[in-house]
């Protein structure tokens, strides 16, 4: 239970693990929890206190990250600049050529001459910027005009209307029921999931 609470308090970035200390703290918490299970001599209360302290440490390190990003050395390290590999930097970060090629493949790069820049991010991931002519065609390049982009907004889940979202959109129950009836549903109760899409249409799924 404490582990679950700790992961919630540590915020999302811990689950996604973004920086080195996120790993460290996670490993520490698991270590404490594991020791508590293996050794009955370690009292449960003490283990809990230890996890609480580790959580506090994790949060303060994340906070430091927020306040002194430059100081903790979070700058991206260029591995490829303007199509040329940076041998010195690769050596410095202990990355073998196989490591680099593997990371490029995982980034969807199969042709090395397509890479303009590649960076070693502080999160440990390699990011790739492809050359302009090697990028997928953008809508802009074909003069296709703009579209509205917006994540779907949930309106119904498991038969219950999500009032907050409905209100935010300045819509009411009457509108929702009318829209649902258009798609053959008697009421929100008959619907498992409904969401408003960016083009104004309603996506509906029955139970």
């Amino acid at each position: 239970m404490t582990i679950v609470v700790a992961t919630r308090v540590l915020r999302f970035r811990h689950v996604g693990i973004m920086a080195r200390h996120n790993y460290l703290v996670a490993a520490g918490i698991v270590g404490v929890a594991g020791a508590g299970i293996l050794n009955p001599a370690n009292s449960l209360a003490l283990g809990l206190v230890a996890i609480v302290f580790l959580t506090v440490i994790g949060i303060s390190l994340s906070f430091l990250d927020l306040k002194l990003p430059q100081r903790i050395g979070n700058k991206p390290i260029p591995l490829i600049s303007y199509g040329k590999m940076e041998k010195k930097q690769l050596r410095k970060v202990n990355m073998t050529i196989e490591n680099l090629l593997g990371q490029l493949r995982l980034n969807g790069v199969f042709k090395l001459d397509n890479v303009e820049n590649a960076y070693f991010e502080a999160t440990g991931k390699v990011s790739v910027v492809k050359k302009a002519e090697a990028r997928p065609v953008f809508r802009q390049q074909l003069n296709l005009g703009t579209k509205m982009a917006c994540p779907p907004i949930q309106l119904v889940y498991d038969g219950k209307v999500i009032e907050k979202n409905l209100k935010r959109l300045a819509l009411d129950h009457r509108w929702l029921e009318k829209e649902l009836q258009k798609q053959g549903f008697a009421s929100p109760r008959a619907v498992f999931f409904a969401a408003l899409l960016e083009n104004g249409s309603l996506y509906v799924c029955s139970h």
């Binding site: 080195r20 200390h21 520490g28 580790l54």
Partner: peptide, 18 residues
């Protein structure tokens, strides 16, 4: 321990979290 975490965080090679 917090201090240790901080130093290790800075010293630890980037590739470990990658």
């Amino acid at each position: 321990v917090g201090g240790i975490f901080l130093t290790v965080n800075i010293m630890l090679p980037r590739r470990t979290s990658g």
